Simulated assay, not measured.
Amino acid sequence: MKTSLTLDLEKTLYAYWEEQGATAVEEVTMPDDAGIVDTLVRQPDGIWRCFELKVTKADFHSNAKLSFIGNYNYFVFPATLYPKLKAEIPAHIGVMTYRAFDPEAIAASVEPPLAPGALTIAKPARYQALQVDNAALTDRFIASLDREVNKAKRLKRGLGAFSNEQLLRELRKRSADYQVYDPDENLYDQFVEKLHNDTIEALQAEVDALTEELAAFKMAADQ
C-alpha cells in the first residue's frame, strides 16, 4: 500500500515530466527479470529514465530490487531525507527532491496547481547505455500504459461494470472485521441505512404527490 507521501511524489513526478513533453507510467515490470521500476519515463527522443521513490530510510534500505536499467536513473526523495542518505547514493545515480506546496497557498490560489509539490534535481544522473533490449522495454511500457487506461475506464464505468456476485464477494471481504459494537463503521450497515433512508424518502415523495392530487380533486369537486 502506497503512503500519501509516496502518492504525492508520484503525482508530482508525472506532472514534471508531462511538462517536459515526456510520457510516464508507474510500476513497469522490466524485461530479463530486472525487477519492477516505480516510475518509467520515455522521452520523445527515445531516452529512458527510471525512478525509484523512497520516503524513509527504511524504504531506501529495503531489499527491494532497484531497476536502474534506463539511460538515466534517479532516486526521488522528500527534500528532508536526501541529506541523510547523500553519502550512500552511487555516483551515476541522480536524485530529485520533493517539497510540498503550502496548503494555505494552494487554497488561496486562483488556479490550483497540477501537483501537490515541486521537484528539484539535487544530483544529476550520468548517462548509461540501456541495460535491457529497447524493443522489449517498449512492449512493457505500452502494456503498463494499457493497464492504467483500463483502470481509468473501470473507474469511469463505476460499480455498474461489476456483477452482483463480485459486489457480494467484496462486501463479504469487508465484513471480516465486523464491528459489533460500532455498526456505523461497517460498510454493509452504512449501505443498508442509506438504502432504508432512500426508500423512505421515495415513499414520502410519493405520499406527498398523492396528497396534492387528492387535495386538488376535492377542491374541484367542491366547485
Rank of each mutant, 00 (worst) to 15 (best):
R157H: 11
K57C: 12
E148Y: 12
A129V: 10
T80K: 12
L119H: 02
L203C: 09
N150K: 14
L40G: 03
A87M: 09
D38R: 11
L155M: 10
F191A: 14
V37Y: 03
P112R: 15
S144A: 15
P83K: 02
A107Q: 13
K173C: 08
R140G: 04
D198L: 13
L187Y: 00
F191Q: 08
A108S: 11
L81Y: 01
A58I: 07
L13W: 01
P113W: 05
E18A: 13
V28D: 00
N197L: 14
G21D: 00
D184H: 10
V95C: 04
L119C: 04
I89F: 08
Q131W: 04
E18Y: 06
F60N: 02
E201R: 15
L5A: 05
P113F: 09
N73V: 11
V149Q: 09
D198F: 08
A136Q: 09
L85R: 02
L114V: 12
D32L: 13
E18N: 13
N63A: 15
E27W: 12
E26N: 13
L114N: 12
A152F: 05
A205Y: 06
L5T: 10
R174D: 06
K84M: 11
T3H: 03
V55C: 13
Y127G: 06
E193V: 12
T199W: 10
Y98V: 09
P116T: 09
V180P: 00
F60T: 05
E170F: 08
D102F: 10
L159R: 01
D222A: 14
Q128K: 07
P124M: 07
D189V: 06
V55A: 10
E88V: 11
A79K: 11
D146P: 01
W48G: 02
I121T: 15
S109Y: 05
K2V: 08
S67K: 02
P31G: 10
D38C: 10
S109A: 15
P183K: 07
T56Q: 02
E10Y: 07
L13Q: 01
E27K: 13
D222I: 11
T199K: 11
T12W: 03
L195F: 08
I89C: 05
M219Y: 06
E88G: 09
A58M: 05
R126Y: 05
K65D: 08
I93Y: 01
L9N: 00
L7I: 12
A79E: 14
D182T: 12
R147D: 09
M1A: 12
I89T: 04
D222V: 12
L9M: 02
K57L: 14
N197T: 12
H92S: 14
E213G: 00
E201Q: 13
K173M: 10
A129C: 05
Y16C: 07
G94M: 05
R174C: 05
E193L: 14
A135C: 03
I47T: 15
I47W: 03
V76C: 01
L168D: 01
R169E: 14
G21Q: 00
V132F: 04
A205L: 09
L119N: 02
G160F: 07
F75P: 01
M30Y: 04
A143K: 05
A100Q: 09
A152P: 00
T6L: 08
T3K: 03
Q128W: 07
S4V: 10
A115T: 02
L210P: 00
M219E: 11
L210W: 04
V76W: 00
S4N: 11
N63H: 12
K173F: 08
E111L: 14
